[in-house]
Each structure stands twice: as C-alpha cells, then as structure tokens.
Amino acid sequence: MFEELFNVFSRRQLSDSDPKLTPLTRTFRNRLIMLLRDHLQSRFGEFLGQLHTKIGYLHGEFQLSNARMQQPDDTLQFVLNCKDEELFDVIELIFKSNLPGITWPDNPLIVVA
C-alpha cells in the first residue's frame, strides 16, 4: 500500500539544472477539478473520499484543510489551497493509486503530444 506513496514530487531532490516552476494559478486548479468531475461523473464523490485517504497518509493528517468538513469537500479545499509542490504530489497520487475511474497508462485524461 505504501510502496510508492512517499515517492512524490515534493519529496524528490531537484537538481540545480531543473527549470524554475511557474506558480500554478487558481484557474489551473479549478480546471483540474472540473476535468476530474466531468470524467468521473457519479463516482466523483467516492474518488475524492479515497484520494483524501491517500493524501492523509502522505501528510500524516486526518483533516487536510483548516475547515471541518466531509472528506470530499476537505479534499477539494486542499487542492484549491495547498502549495504547488503538494498539488503536484496529488496529481501523481491520482495516477499511482489505482483510484476509482482512473486507469494508467490508457487514460483519456492523459494527452500525449
């Protein structure tokens, strides 16, 4: 279960030659949520609940945001307000964790250019 959980963006060493990252916008975060919602449809709430569990293990926390709310809403608040590095971790977890509705490598959410 924990084999790949901690091998995420924020915990890997970046080299000095890595390009500097542009800050992620609120619009990007909104579009990420909208894309997942539209793809998962009726499974979106279940997905957010299971993603909450994965993020909780990663951070060692039961609540991800300062607000007291149900897991799906807490997950959304975290995605909208976390540090950019933490959002990259969440995106990795989505594809690494075998969550409902997400398959790898043949996932329609991934476009190879």
Rank of each mutant, 00 (worst) to 15 (best):
T27Y: 05
I55L: 09
F9G: 04
F78Y: 13
I94L: 09
G45I: 02
L40V: 04
T53H: 10
F44D: 00
H59Y: 11
I102W: 02
R37P: 00
T53C: 06
P72E: 02
V8T: 11
L93A: 13
E46G: 02
N66T: 05
N7K: 13
S42P: 09
N81T: 14
G49W: 12
I102R: 00
F9M: 03
S42F: 05
F78T: 03
F44N: 07
F62G: 10
M69E: 04
P23V: 07
Q70N: 13
Q63D: 14
Q41S: 10
F6M: 14
L35G: 09
S97Q: 15
V90K: 06
L24V: 12
H39D: 01
L51K: 15
L35A: 14
R11L: 06
T25K: 09
I33D: 02
E46L: 05
T22D: 08
A67T: 13
R11M: 04
T22P: 06
S15T: 08
T75Q: 00
P19S: 06
Y57I: 00
E86R: 15
G49P: 01
K20I: 03
T27D: 10
T22L: 11
L35T: 14
R37M: 01
K20V: 07
T22K: 08
P72Y: 05
F78Q: 05
G56W: 09
E46D: 06
D38Y: 08
Q71H: 12
S97A: 13
V90I: 06
H52R: 06
D18T: 13
C82G: 14
